[in-house]
Design a protein around this nucleic acid. Structure first.
Lengths: 233, 233
DNA sequence: TTCATCTCTATGTCTAAACTTATTTTGGCA
DNA sequence: TGCCAAAATAAGTTTAGACATAGAGATGAA
């Protein structure tokens, strides 16, 4: 057993992980079944089940009824990204947060955003452009569309006082989200808002969220040059 | 209850999620404790516990002993990214996969990579540059360092036949990984390998993996222009 | 042979009950 | 009033046992 101060299930995941990493159990091998491991570790089968399910979710094990549990051959591993709230992220970095609403109006939806939101092109939504600053240096520029049909009350909010993201996240939890990372050369507008040169490579995060009434919001976030989105596993 | 054909725990997560989305339970509200919900749903407390733990992991609920379960106020939601194996990704898109090893040699570790791998600068590792193609169009260019101390046998592998990623992933499961996404303007080399123009914005994935012997490999992947990394939740 | 059907097995799920533990609440004491 | 210790509480974990079910393998019919 590897761990000391954890739950039994945790200790079992650690030990199984160790056996895989140390290649006692090779990729593709079938490992002993739950009942056997329960005996080996001196715990109930439910405990082994919990441990192995965790490792299966992690992508280290493949489990199938009747076929048993195998060490994954080609572990296409997963990473969890936490998308923080900008203000919290900036404040955690010890900087002073501020933001500026560059534009706020009702506008007809352009085709690309309409497709992402599964709404008809030309529908009038709230269109918002905001720049977020850390210690007065541009941190990210967001271009957001908000659907009042799925987020009633949005028209009445003063987004100078509370950021759209915070207001939405606090009031309209979503059921489903699409997300994509890409890179773009800064447009003239991006460059102006982020105080950089046109053409600079920017990390772009495009995210659309949905609840049972449809798309809530779709946002394109352009991060300041050099920004890296970190994930650890 | 919302779901029909799922487990009881699943049905409970759906129903609780619905109550939150429909704002029957508002952000910050304390929800009934496990015992009460168990009675309401007519299941054992363990089943409610499982359901609520799932929602807590998702970031929708905050749970504390004695204090009870609350709807998260500022859900900084998580997204799971699956980092696929290039070849599988290309083949799944219906394209024909091929790759070319541009360079393979032992070289002294530069400072930035050394820092990421927690190895001394100047240590001689295997350095590999590979381009992966889909239907003969460049898909990604990778610049990889492999530590034979953590991945014994790496020197003897013919990386023309099997890609480094596949060989490593199949033979050396990792315990820990660091990952970062960023954007860079294509260098002259990037541009040549990806058959694009210098300065084009490229999505860069930087990943370092570790096992109990230390850093296994550190790789910088430059995707072809326009590539987007997708996550759904 | 090939296909359909049956059987069996390892995982999936649930339950009731017990015990553990973090944390809040309280109540007593100074 | 302020502080500390004790009690209470809600979640965390485990257990033994049961039943459900996917799906691999065996069996048998065509």
């Amino acid at each position: 057993m590897t761990e000391r101060n954890a739950s039994k299930a945790q200790a079992i995941t650690s030990e199984v992980r160790r056996r895989i990493v140390d290649r006692e159990w090779r990729q593709g091998d079938r490992i002993p079944d739950e009942a056997e491991l329960a005996v080996e570790f001196g715990v109930a089968r439910a405990t082994v089940n919990k441990a192995l399910q965790m490792l299966a979710e992690e992508g280290l094990l493949d489990r199938k009824r009747r076929a048993g549990t195998h060490v994954t051959v080609n572990p296409a591993r997963k990473a969890t990204l936490t998308i923080p709230i900008v203000r919290e992220q900036i404040e955690q970095a010890g900087m002073e947060y501020s933001h500026r609403v560059v534009a706020q109006r009702r506008s007809p939806l352009p085709a690309d955003v309409a497709a992402r939101m599964a709404l008809p092109e030309g529908r009038e939504l709230i269109h918002l452009r905001t720049v977020h600053y850390g210690d007065d240096k541009p941190f990210q520029a967001e271009d957001r569309w908000i659907n009042p049909a799925a987020a009633p009350g949005a028209e009445a909010v003063d987004f100078q006082r509370i950021t759209a993201n915070e207001w939405l996240v606090r009031n309209f939890p979503w059921l489903h989200a699409d997300m994509a990372f890409s890179a773009e050369n800064a447009s003239a507008r991006d460059a102006r808002l982020l105080e950089t040169r046109q053409g600079t490579a920017l990390l772009i995060l495009q995210r659309t969220t949905f609840n049972d009434l449809g798309a809530i919001t779709s946002v394109r976030v352009a991060f300041h040059p050099g920004y890296a989105m970190i994930a650890t596993h």
